[in-house]
Amino acid sequence: MTNNSAKSNLTATADVLRELPDIPRRDNEPVFDEPWQAEVFALSLSLHEQGVFTWTEWAHTLSSTIKEAQRDGDPDLGNTYYLHWLSALEQLIIDKNLGDAAQLNKLHKAWDTAARNTAHGLPITLP
């Protein structure tokens, strides 16, 4: 168990507090901002339920992905959260040998081509 119990530090200096960014808050926000976020969320849950990875493996991959993004300059204010989720899912699928990066790239290109060859407003499908 790794619960940290931290007592409040009432003597923290004002200087330190000034450097801390505000917490971004919105009231009554939707659970998902865009449909793809719901899809990647459900994909992870579904793969976990199918036994592809444990939830601990998932949490570990997600937190590593978030740390990496922060190192690369993402202010990480919660709005990029599902992008990190998507990156973590790609990584874990590769780690678990369900596919490799080359296959994902190939499919990525195929969908791009399919979209460009599909008339506006029609459903996009792979040939």
């Binding site: 699928i93 994902l104 060859n117």
Partner: peptide
Amino acid sequence: HEHSHLDETELRVRALKSLLSEKGYLD
């Protein structure tokens, strides 16, 4: 404007779903 466009994120999600579908992990 006669053609569709998928942004980078949508392309990644679709690629992922296609891969999982090929492997039989997509329901």
